[in-house]
């Protein structure tokens, strides 16, 4: 593989990373809202929240992507395919992240909140100072895991024509008749990215753990 082709692959890998990172971030924000809705006492929030999680986790991402990619123009919204892809990935990861967050918030030991109550913290203060930081630490491993899942799942946006790592490998394989080479290189690049994220995640976890040592 020539240097030029390798650079093309690297560029495509950059797209994969960018696409995934943006989707994870947007998905985190939506996920927070969905999580809040799902644990809400108000049924007008709780039921849609629950339904959202169930639907987006129950339908294959590929089907979601195909649906969104074709639905947007059908209802008159013209966006580039990369935008449709980011919307699809974000909506999907939001459902998973909402569940992770819910698990995190629910595993904050009750006693810690009771202690906060006893020193007179308002519920809002408790949320900001006690619940959220602890819940975030608890969900960090799940978040890293989700990031890796989305990195891999982002390969599916190749079907709607977004030029990321998988699509690039596909294009180059087709034009060069060397699928073994290009798919292997793409696979290796995914591996490196995923391992890097996993490694970064465990470093962050370790740092947070030292930071939280009593």
């Amino acid at each position: 593989m020539s240097m030029r082709l390798f650079e093309l692959m690297l560029w495509a890998a950059g797209n994969t990373i960018l696409l995934s990172a943006i989707s994870i971030l947007i998905g985190f924000v939506i996920g927070l809202m969905v999580c809040a809705a799902k644990v809400s006492a108000n049924p007008f929030l709780r039921i849609p929240g629950t339904l959202y999680v169930s639907l987006f986790r129950g339908v294959p991402l590929l089907v979601q992507l195909l649906l969104i990619y074709n639905l947007l123009p059908a209802v008159g919204i013209m966006v580039p395919s990369v935008v449709a892809a980011v919307i699809g990935l974000s909506l999907c990861t939001a459902a998973y992240q909402a569940e992770n967050l819910r698990g995190g918030f629910q595993s904050v030991p009750r006693g810690l909140l009771e202690a906060a109550d006893m020193v007179g913290m308002s519920p809002w203060k408790q949320l900001v100072r006690i619940r959220a930081p602890i819940a975030f630490r608890l969900t960090l491993p799940a978040l890293v895991n989700e990031a890796i899942l989305i990195l891999k799942a982002s390969s599916l946006v190749s079907v709607v024509g977004v030029i990321e790592l998988t699509r690039m490998a596909q294009n180059l394989s087709a034009s060069s008749f060397r699928p073994l080479l290009f798919y292997s290189v793409a696979g290796a690049m995914y591996l490196v990215i995923c391992w890097a994220v996993a490694g970064g995640g465990s470093i962050a976890e370790r740092m947070l753990r030292t930071g939280s040592r009593a």
Partner: peptide, 18 residues
């Protein structure tokens, strides 16, 4: 580790086209 670190789609392409 290799299977878990790469997308299913890429594995399929490698198998089917490669």
């Amino acid at each position: 580790e290799v299977i878990r670190g790469t997308p299913f789609l890429v594995q399929l392409f490698l198998l089917y086209f490669g």
